[in-house]
Amino acid sequence: MSRPIPTEDEKDEVLLAARYGDIEDLQQFVEKFGAEPLNDIRDGSGNSVLHMVCANGHTAALDYLLGVVSPSLISAPNAAQSTPLHWAALNQQLDAARKLVECPAGPGAALIDAKNTAGRSPLGEAENVGWEEGAKWFVEVMSLEDAAKGEGEEELRPADAADQIEVEIEDAEGQVARMKIAPPAQQSKPENR
Rank of each mutant, 00 (worst) to 15 (best):
A35S: 14
Q92N: 09
K115V: 13
K115P: 01
S48G: 10
R178V: 12
R193N: 12
E125M: 13
V49E: 02
G150S: 12
V139G: 04
V101D: 07
V14Y: 03
V141M: 10
Q92G: 07
P183R: 15
R3C: 04
R3M: 14
D113I: 12
D43T: 14
E166C: 03
E133G: 08
Y20P: 02
E173A: 15
K180A: 13
V101Y: 08
P6V: 07
A96L: 04
L85Y: 02
E145C: 11
R157L: 10
V69C: 11
E132I: 10
N47K: 12
D95T: 12
M52C: 11
L94D: 00
V53Q: 09
A80I: 04
R98Y: 01
R120A: 06
I169R: 09
T7N: 02
R98A: 00
K32V: 02
A110M: 11
V30F: 00
F29I: 06
W137T: 01
A89L: 02
L16R: 13
F33Q: 02
G46Y: 06
E102M: 07
V139L: 08
S143D: 15
G108V: 09
R178D: 06
V68T: 13
A97E: 03
M52L: 07
Q175W: 03
V167F: 01
E173K: 15
L26Q: 04
T83K: 09
L65T: 13
P107Y: 06
L16Y: 14
